[in-house]
Design a protein around this nucleic acid. Sequence first.
DNA 1: AATGCTCCAGCTGAGC
DNA 2: GCTCAGCTGGAGCATT
Lengths: 204, 204, 204, 204
Amino acid sequence: MRGMKTPREQLVHHVQNLERIEAERQAAAEDFSAALAGAKAAGFDPGTLRVVLRLRKLTPGQRKERRALEAIYLAALGMLEGDPLPDEARRRLDEEQQSRDMPGKGLSEAGSPPSREPKATPAPPPQLPMNLKDPEDARQEGRAAAAAGKRIYDNPYPAGDPCRAAWDEGWCEKKKSNGMDTPAAYQRRSKPPEKNDKDEKGAA
Amino acid sequence: MRGMKTPREQLVHHVQNLERIEAERQAAAEDFSAALAGAKAAGFDPGTLRVVLRLRKLTPGQRKERRALEAIYLAALGMLEGDPLPDEARRRLDEEQQSRDMPGKGLSEAGSPPSREPKATPAPPPQLPMNLKDPEDARQEGRAAAAAGKRIYDNPYPAGDPCRAAWDEGWCEKKKSNGMDTPAAYQRRSKPPEKNDKDEKGAA
Amino acid sequence: MRGMKTPREQLVHHVQNLERIEAERQAAAEDFSAALAGAKAAGFDPGTLRVVLRLRKLTPGQRKERRALEAIYLAALGMLEGDPLPDEARRRLDEEQQSRDMPGKGLSEAGSPPSREPKATPAPPPQLPMNLKDPEDARQEGRAAAAAGKRIYDNPYPAGDPCRAAWDEGWCEKKKSNGMDTPAAYQRRSKPPEKNDKDEKGAA
Amino acid sequence: MRGMKTPREQLVHHVQNLERIEAERQAAAEDFSAALAGAKAAGFDPGTLRVVLRLRKLTPGQRKERRALEAIYLAALGMLEGDPLPDEARRRLDEEQQSRDMPGKGLSEAGSPPSREPKATPAPPPQLPMNLKDPEDARQEGRAAAAAGKRIYDNPYPAGDPCRAAWDEGWCEKKKSNGMDTPAAYQRRSKPPEKNDKDEKGAA
DNA sequence: AATGCTCCAGCTGAGC
DNA sequence: GCTCAGCTGGAGCATT
């Protein structure tokens, strides 16, 4: 009869049970380490793999939000370092501004993209397809655009151009607050959608 | 004379010393938590702030490498989700391919950017400056470009176009190995530059 | 006016603030490590010092309870290894049994300590003051005592005698449950006394 | 052929592999948590169980050393709180002293155990079998004994007597250093015996 | 001296 | 909402 077991017998049973299960757990942990070491031996970076695995546990919406927030913060600190804001970040920043502008009027003719064309880039052998413009000029243009009420979408520089990120940073630097005391674009919003089983991971 | 102290006196001294210093450490930790809570109260996301603080401890080169590796891995997994590869990632991917093509000959006329112009986006009200093309088509184009030996720089889609990321992903998907058993673009390279005091952080 | 600061300026301020405070925190952490290294250099064991520091953060009552629980569990598993139960552990074990016996009557003449005397140990040069008895016999005696309803206090062996711990283990092994389904002696009871500032540490 | 896989295919494979193994790891971790919760539901203390599990991973020798070191440190800090030193701690403390005394001569007539008998304890209802002596007196006696070159084994008080621990503390407090600058009794010595498979755990 | 390993403080995500 | 266990990153340590 089980209920008659002395506390000591119960304890021994639980301890043995725990030891067995913990051994399994440790074995599983070692399997994981081994797999990671295998990936490393194949030339992949373990740290980046960990990051990727963590990201894959999130929903695409959560992933986008995180990247957007991170980029917005980095832009505000002047640390974009050549990479333009992701689209989600632009959407957030613009959304906030729109909510400010909306009551009055729609934002008029936004950015007639200046006559800069991506231009040739006929044979950019090892370099990036960059133009000759100084990114600092682009940063100043971004500041001016923000001061003039232009939207973050009005960045005229093409992809791959360091000026694009510099313009973004300049815009973020000068953009006025929308009057709200809390900068909505800097906050998290999305909630993990109630943990249903149908997983919506990124494709593999 | 100090050397005459008994072991017990030494121990008591060390323990008292450690307790005092640990109290200071804990006070400092609480200060940090308080500062973070203050930032949170001001509307900023604590998690993102931690990420930013960690990134700021790195050199710009290290930051770029991390972002590039992460993007390359995500691209390979089809998880770019609308954001194109950072330039550093393109440089890495192309560098590797170049080292393969180099022995034979330079890669001929790269990508005459097809006649898609960014065009229009005259008043992109709340949407991104996107075109009407299906990103899946762009992904297929990227695959074809990789199969044809095109370079990652030959992505014809402009910034802010979801097709740009899709093309990148397709290219990464089909790109052949350069024959080396270790995918150089997937590995870390840079070393922290010997820990000198002159810090080269991003601007604040 | 402070409220007019743009979100970006707020962010920059918070980040700088956090970086400064985190530098202080790290400095404090390094001070602690240095102090611990100093203690180690003086011949003290860092791991044990950490344990001691943690124990000193507890109230004496909490310390006793922890040690008692740990000893009770180890006794039940036969891992006392020569050290008898602490008094607090005896009190717990006896208290539980008393609550069982109480309804009927007081426990009669407990253990007439058998005529074992510590036996002089006139000059136990490097050994412990142990007797010649086999601890296994003592363990069996403990089992018999528990079966006979003896109390844990009735252990007849003196301090420093391995038989004392063996008797305790035997007693724990055979002791019947008090009928309650939850072994009260195996559970925590005390609460940290509401965290008031007047600290009641052990003496230093 | 496997070697022909593109880096991307390798990465996908590794990531899927890692995700699968990590799922197993997490499942194992949940099993463990469930088992611990079961033990808790049965009335056992999870924290103490964790401590016990960790101790059971050590060899008996390592366990003894840890307990001895901890007790020695606590004794030096006056935190024994009623529990006397474990035998291993006495052995260490005495061993050190012996090595000091050895060159000259063996320690003469050690402790003629004074005529204190455990004193019946005929029916110690809920109290411990304590005597009427003030532990502070015993502490002072311990100090005097240490000053007089007595050994730690010479503690005259019986098990279960608070005076026993007090005498130990007093002895530790006054004991002179053996002249060596490093207190050997305060240091770790034993090495985990080379990690052979034949496990020598405590009995279960 | 460099490298791998082991351990610990701190952060993250769940559970009450 | 808070606590708390698991995990990660980094530092210290031993080893070659």
